[in-house]
Design a protein around this nucleic acid. Structure first.
Lengths: 346, 346
DNA sequence: TTGTAAGCGTTATCAC
DNA sequence: GTGATAACGCTTACAA
């Protein structure tokens, strides 16, 4: 009884009409007049049978599955400390739900994503794709472009004609470092969020360098370190920075996640933040305000980034041809307690 | 050209065989002998055409979609600070991938989850369901039980015959609080991870009380506070605890997320951890080791919880009828720097 | 060994 | 206004 699902046939039978009528009524097809009585009977029958159309059958005939793919390009062992993902999810669900869509989430290794998510597209498992994370040159992406598959990138990526939604990483980093400079710091180290193969990392580093240059501070290559998305890398690179004994009084860490690790490295070595070393982050994750000390950082509107991306994608899926209408969101500096004056150098 | 997907018909034509043969070869159907030459030709044709079977068509005929649903019962504004979710995801993907499955993620409001995820089941969008989070009494869950739909709960839930995978929350909390007692603390406060309507919260509180009782420490209702999953609630309840001036020297916070907030509340009020107040958490999230001070906590094997749950679910989906074979994983105390001796009471 | 034909549950096109 | 009928792309008895 519960075992056998009701089909539109069953509904039709119960309502005493044909399957066509059931479909027309339930999908609210315009331009066809169904008598209110019949309409009512069908709706009633559908409800009493607990009828829900079979998604596969609908997909087969309509060509659309009403599922969006969220592809996270991440090393799988990174995801558990990547709070970014959570904000994307939170930003996505409202839009997803209000459009009666579903979300398939998958993770692909940034190094060999070949085919990985293309398979979803080829099997017609998704109608559109949201790509997040450090995507470098990628053949699969090229394929998406070629077949003109609805795709939006959350973040950025070198040379592509695909839509993206992002912040201006360079400008954001510039803001952060300028804040440090204004506080009087002249020896400012930098720990990137990721290796230099990732555009976001490069852009943030560029913002750092530009801020330095615009304030007549010489760029010291020895003061920059490359992180790799993890808290651990923030800890490790900060420790290395301290050990090398190059004098500096502040650090721009291009990710709050790494800043958490950096903060621990500093304090475990007996230095105080911000008295000895000023620390500025990037992202403004929920935990930033609760770090000890509360982290000064650049606020990224990640949830909005995600929902804007999703809405853009939906337009694309509806066939609107907005070629490459990218969206760049603004960022704000959030000043808390991790930055002090730059009159002392360790 | 790229526009039109190849169908099994196309492959058959190119290989000079029938669609049946294509299906048999590509699905590696046993018991049917196909000449190696033919087999090779089919495979070759499929590759050269970039043929991937249409998932909807396969689903329609096979009755299975090869998709698992991960349902997160959360208030949407909680998810961005719920690092738990990330660990679940990380734990899931390996199993998902190696079984050629996909994952639909959805979030439902714990208060009215009616129908929300049942719709996925009814529309046959998923073959099995993984439920995480604070699930209270729930009609939809009853429905799943009735139709015997493959379901595994990550966590626990009152009165259900559904499978679950969890830790012994009570025992884990007992371990944490006993650690505090052994350190000499006798005035131990408690902040739960969630309101008392959630089983995990109640179990952890019970462990706390039991540890107290077993060590002849009187239970003080005024020393317990209820959190609500968020960092903010940890901060708020800790602040309230301090304000009330009830003497205590240690706090058991039944969630690392809340412990982060609690830690900030303590330090912002000029108290030191652990010199003035000892703090012990629950979960051992990746960030716990990097808190200032590094947080002593109970390690929950969340990734394993997730992968075990997934494997159990796969068995269920394969029709193995292991009725209610629950799995309870062990937890370990992780001693770091947030607990000191209990000889002082604030 | 390979091919033919039926059917999965919808939606959509037309006559009626 | 409503109801047959044909797709959609695949798997699988069954026949050759």
């Amino acid at each position: 009884m519960s075992a056998k699902r009701a089909t539109s046939q069953d509904v039709a039978r119960l309502a005493g009409v044909s399957r066509t009528t059931v479909s027309v009524v339930l999908n609210n097809v315009q331009g066809i007049n169904i008598s209110p009585a019949t309409r009512q009977r069908v709706i009633e029958a559908a409800r009493s049978l607990g009828y829900v159309p079979d998604a596969a059958a609908q997909a087969l005939v309509s060509g659309r599955v009403r599922i969006i793919g969220l592809i996270l390009a991440r090393y799988s062992y990174h995801i558990s400390s990547d709070a970014f993902i959570l904000q994307i999810l939170e930003g996505l669900f409202d839009t997803i739900h209000s459009n009666d869509l579903r979300l398939i989430v998958d993770i692909v290794n940034p190094e060999h994503q070949e085919q990985a998510y293309l398979q979803l597209v080829r099997a017609k498992r998704i109608d559109g794709i949201l790509l997040s994370g450090p995507l470098v040159d990628d053949r699969a992406l090229k394929a998406l472009e070629e077949i003109n598959f609805p795709t939006v990138i959350v973040g950025q990526i070198a040379k592509t004609t695909l839509c993206y939604v992002d912040v201006d990483n360079c400008a954001a980093a510039y803001k952060a470092v300028t804040h440090l400079v204004r506080l009087g710091h002249t020896r400012i180290a930098c720990i990137t969020n990721a290796p230099p193969s990732y555009t976001a990392a490069v852009d943030r580093l560029r913002g750092y360098q530009q801020a330095l240059a615009d304030h007549q501070i010489a760029f010291e290559p020895t003061l920059v370190r490359y992180g790799d998305f993890t808290i651990e890398s923030g800890y490790r690179e900060m420790a290395s920075l301290i050990e090398k004994q190059w004098p500096f009084s502040a650090v721009f860490v291009a990710s709050d996640t790494l800043a958490l690790g950096a903060n621990a490295a500093i304090q475990e070595r007996g230095y105080k933040v911000p008295a000895d070393i000023s620390l500025i982050g990037f992202d403004d994750l929920p935990m930033a305000r609760f770090m000890e000390p509360a982290l000064t950082t650049v606020h990224l509107p990640i949830k909005r980034l995600a929902s804007e991306a999703c809405e853009l994608l939906i337009k694309l899926m509806n066939g609107e041809n907005l070629n490459c209408s990218n969206i760049i969101l603004d960022v704000d500096l959030v000043i808390r307690d991790s930055c002090g004056s730059g009159d002392k150098v360790i």
